[in-house]
Design a protein around this nucleic acid. Sequence first.
DNA 1: TACATTTGCTTAGGTTGCAAAGTAAATTTA
DNA 2: TAAATTTACTTTGCAACCTAAGCAAATGTA
Lengths: 153, 153
Amino acid sequence: MTKKQKKSAYLDPLHSIGYLSRINFRAFNKALEQLIAPHKVSQGQWRFLRVLWEENGLTQKDLSDRVGITEATTVNGVLGLEEAGLVTRRKSKVDARKMMVRLTPKARSLRNKLIPMVVKVNEQALKGIKKKDIVVARRVLTQTFNNLTSEDD
Amino acid sequence: MTKKQKKSAYLDPLHSIGYLSRINFRAFNKALEQLIAPHKVSQGQWRFLRVLWEENGLTQKDLSDRVGITEATTVNGVLGLEEAGLVTRRKSKVDARKMMVRLTPKARSLRNKLIPMVVKVNEQALKGIKKKDIVVARRVLTQTFNNLTSEDD
DNA sequence: TACATTTGCTTAGGTTGCAAAGTAAATTTA
DNA sequence: TAAATTTACTTTGCAACCTAAGCAAATGTA
């Protein structure tokens, strides 16, 4: 293990927020996927459901914004949910460009089963970490995201 | 916007470390991609180069471990690097199962051009954040990763 | 030496993501 | 009202992941 450039260690790519975000993202995904797999819901689908549980009847644009992905990706995901019988897609009568995505009863009934699992993943991830530090970490991650996205230089 | 369950806000999926990791991972990727694109290097390739610059001549297994991906993914990535003339792949003479990956002079010469760009992305991301908080965030992310991966329940 | 296991690489197939370009409906502008 | 623009969705093609299953070389065991 070579260990040069000790000075700016907090910029070290191998321990950067970027690297840590990537491996954490995968770890969270995997943990969640394993928990919810018995319900035939993928982690990708879960992300849409989570948002729709908060507010049912969104356009694909709104869904995209809230999940944090592009509309192109949303199309695929929502089509999958439709196939699985978890959402319906219908053109808005008010604005024919809009595609309204609504939960089916089946999806609504999944809520109380799936939410606790997400909570569980979070609890496992955060075990032994001080709440104060978690708050700091969340603030830092929010800030880095904003720094990289809003102020496009 | 509904706002129930205020109590366990630090478990709120929409502001969880998992969610923040995901959007940060993409933001870092995108920022880096844009900077290094002129050099015909993708962010995926950059991850291998970064490790090889630290230690040249690794097996695909070692590369996978250090980059944090599976060997299956590494095969693809390294084949791409070979096509781009950035690495060579040769069977180890000591152990014929091993595929040694080595940088070409071309890749070695890229180092001094690319590293500063990564540093730049990090600097942009961390702008205005206290070093102390960054240290906390890195520790939290390392811990959540360990919590989710090592202690498989 | 023969058989079983481990290790490292590869292939095949699927998921989640993106950008770019295209379509159709709504809105703005002239 | 006609033309230009914007908005929302879609399609296409690609990148970067993964898991599962398989192969071949090395190693361990009897």
